[in-house]
């Protein structure tokens, strides 16, 4: 199975030699504006994670691999491993770049840029090292892993193109459902609904807002931790579903 992961890396070697330095440069540039490192990390990790699928699609080598002495299960699990590897490398590099740029800002090298931006927030608050921590990157990891967990079974059943269409539909639908669910839960627990009472939060009692935010601070680590574990479990279950779907697929 590792041969299948290796062939993805070997085939993309030239692209990676360009993509990774460019990605690091992009992360470093965005890191100088603190939180902007997060969308850059999301984009960079997504590209690394989906690169092997894109390569497979453009080269149309699916029947080649399936004709080799490997099982369909190995093909599926290798793809999941490659995607996971892409996400972890992307986030790992984000972490490293964030820490390095953060240190440089701490030593004063970044102070000029923060001041020139006319930021009212202090350079420390904008420090990318804060955003390049495991806590800050966890939501990105969850989003990417969940996206892959949803997309890959469709990919293995119907191919990349149709899989992407279905993923978009599922993604939009899921966001809508989650939004409505969160609003309903907030309403049930006596909080304002941002959608039904959009101005309410601005005029809310500062004490109530502070209480809500304090509660949020308590809950966030648990929600994040649970999301990471949950998404990994879903990713594993998704790989089994993909295996079942791919095992009987005609190529």
């Amino acid at each position: 199975m590792l041969n299948l992961v290796w062939k993805d890396v070997a085939a993309a070697r030239r692209v990676l030699l360009i993509l990774i330095p460019l990605g690091i440069l992009q992360l470093a540039v965005f890191a100088s504006v603190g939180p902007f490192i997060l969308p850059a990390a999301l984009f960079f990790s997504a590209v690394l994670a989906s690169g092997s699928i894109a390569l497979e699609e453009t080269q149309r080598t699916e029947t080649l691999w399936a004709s080799l002495p490997v099982s369909r299960g190995q093909i599926v699990f290798a793809r999941y491993l490659t995607v996971l590897l892409g996400i972890l490398v992307g986030l790992g590099l984000t972490c490293a770049v964030g820490q390095v740029v953060g240190r440089l800002m701490d030593t004063g090298l970044g102070a000029g840029s923060a001041a020139s931006a006319g930021a009212t927030t202090s350079a420390t608050a904008m420090n990318p090292a804060l955003f390049a921590t495991s806590t800050a990157l966890a939501p990105i990891f969850v989003v990417l892993i969940l996206t892959a967990a949803i997309y890959l079974p469709f990919y293995f059943r119907w191919g990349a193109g149709r899989g992407a269409v279905i993923l978009s539909a599922v993604g939009v639908g899921s966001l809508l459902i989650i939004t409505l669910l969160v609003q309903w839960l907030m309403g049930e627990n006596g909080y304002y609904s941002p959608m039904l009472q959009p101005g309410a939060w601005n005029t809310a009692d500062p004490a109530a807002r502070a209480a809500f935010e304090a509660r949020l601070q308590e809950v966030v680590p648990w929600v994040l931790g649970g999301s990471v574990v949950g998404s990994v479990v879903l990713f594993a279950l998704s790989s089994v579903a993909s295996w079942v779907l791919y095992e009987t697929r005609d190529l």
Partner: peptide, 9 residues
């Protein structure tokens, strides 16, 4: 295969 496929690049 009738249309052999490997990595073009």
């Amino acid at each position: 295969h009738d249309d052999p496929r490997f990595y073009d690049h």
